[in-house]
Design a binder for these strands. Structure first.
Lengths: 210, 210
DNA sequence: GTCTATAAAGCGATAGAC
DNA sequence: GTCTATCGCTTTATAGAC
């Protein structure tokens, strides 16, 4: 991918995080990237094309930041390095229980990059209710994200049956998304959201049998 | 409220469910209601006015259908009568555990009215991330909805401390919203969503101490 | 590849008759 | 209260020069 394409997609991510998928104007995005609208159309054909590529771009970025590529994608996930669990600069704790918690709590950080990715992904999800075109991409990203969480869960609770682990991962990721919307819209303080999620992790792990 | 106003708002609810809040076009809504666009503006001033009234209308409707007015609003809730828990036409089971389950599972029914309300409320939530104007309405509706669930939980688990009950209600409602988005966008089959939610209810109730 | 300029369409909102 | 007709701004998308 060329630098210009990347610049345009970066601008698109910013605009989506600020105004939403349906608030995205090609002119805004072009201004954000410092190019003309014509160039945007040259590279991405039309508005749906811009959206498709922007969302794939945002997903990739989340992948890199969550350090996926081993057992999952983490596309619903957040960005950045510090997660408040006390592991500082260390990217991947070896304790599986900590790793699980870290993976899920990455979403809840008040860093611009995290907010941007979380907001954009939330928008993608919300928009997919009305736009079937987005569902394929979303379905695979969501499945990978559930699989990653399930992988961590299985490491923490080796004795648990597969079905129960998957169900727990589905509940945890769905809960995370519900909490995320509330946080991003200012209805739930960040620390409260983190606390609720942490407690649910404890509940699910306890249920699966530590 | 006059019949015409009601007809317009009913049309608005349908259009919002089909195209989303941000996809609502005044012309579509007018066509749906069988009136001219001018009449829509005559009754509701402008687009934001339409939206405000439409969302209040949808909220009221959800209230009536969930049978609220006793200890909460249930504004996140669904519509209709049958909930699949086996109580058929009986609107309010007396067993508190059943009542709790029923309240939450009302959201997950494949009836046009339920989909319409769920979709519209999901849209309201998603939109509030970008539109602070909607937050007040959403905050009070959300608080009432959490309070209703917490009330049922407290009845099921009288010994549990208040804080734990509220936290459980917050987790259950947030989970419900996360599952709802996945269901509405076709990523999660209805029965699967119901199963996951039911299991979480069981988990939370078990944790609070039956 | 990138720009300026502009066509074409979409959409919110109003005027004025009835 | 309700309609038809239309105005004017916004936004998508393209033409054509460089």
């Amino acid at each position: 991918m060329t630098d210009r394409r990347r610049a345009i997609l970066t601008g698109a991510a910013r605009v989506i995080a600020r105004r939403g998928v349906r608030g995205l104007r090609v002119a805004d995005l072009a201004a954000e990237a410092g190019v003309s609208t014509a160039l945007v159309y040259y590279h991405f054909k039309d508005r749906p094309g811009i959206l498709r590529h922007a969302l794939a771009f945002i997903g990739d970025r989340a992948d890199r930041y969550t350090g996926a590529g081993e057992d999952g994608h983490g596309t619903g996930g957040g960005t950045g390095e510090r997660d408040g669990t006390g592991d500082g600069e260390a990217p991947r704790p070896s304790d599986p229980r900590r790793l699980l918690e870290r993976t899920l709590l990455l979403e809840f950080q008040d860093l611009p990059e995290v907010r941007e990715n979380s907001t954009a992904w939330g928008e993608l999800r919300a928009h997919s209710v009305f736009d079937p075109e987005l569902r394929d991409e979303l379905a695979s990203a969501g499945a990978a994200w559930v699989a990653e969480v399930a992988g961590h869960l299985a490491e923490v609770c080796p004795a648990a049956p597969d079905g129960a682990v998957t169900a727990a991962a589905e509940r945890l990721t769905a809960l995370l998304e519900g909490l995320s919307v509330r946080w991003l819209s200012g209805l739930l303080p960040l620390e409260h959201a983190r606390g609720l999620l942490r407690e649910s992790i404890a509940v699910e792990v306890g249920r699966l049998g530590l």
